[in-house]
């Protein structure tokens, strides 16, 4: 996944005190995203690539680039698997 991403148009997002809630209007499922996850999602939907988002996360949270890439890859897999986020093609 080296491209950019966009939020599925069928998903409603509401920011909360501890992150965000995402509601998939077609499936009726809703999800909780923690603060770090919401920060990453915001970067991705604002045009950051996976690599750029990892660099931002590593810088903000003082973690290694490797850890940041791994955590973002896991988050992306979850978001795409749930059809909340889609890759621009």
């Amino acid at each position: 996944m080296s491209g950019t991403f966009f939020l599925n148009p069928q998903v409603s997002l509401a920011e909360t005190d501890d992150g965000a809630v995402l509601l998939h209007e077609r499936t009726g499922r809703y999800w909780q995203l923690n603060t770090t996850g919401f920060s990453v999602l915001r970067g991705l939907t604002n045009g950051q690539t996976c690599e750029q988002a990892a660099q931002t996360l590593a810088s903000q949270c003082a973690i290694s680039d490797t850890r940041a890439r791994s955590d973002i890859a896991a988050l992306l897999a979850s978001l795409c698997s749930a059809d909340l986020l889609r890759e621009c093609r």
Binding site: R29, W31, L33, N34, T36, I63, D71, A74, S78
Partner: peptide
Amino acid sequence: GYEPPALTAVGEF
């Protein structure tokens, strides 16, 4: 403190 990004299924309606 670092909290890894996490997505949690809450439910459905």
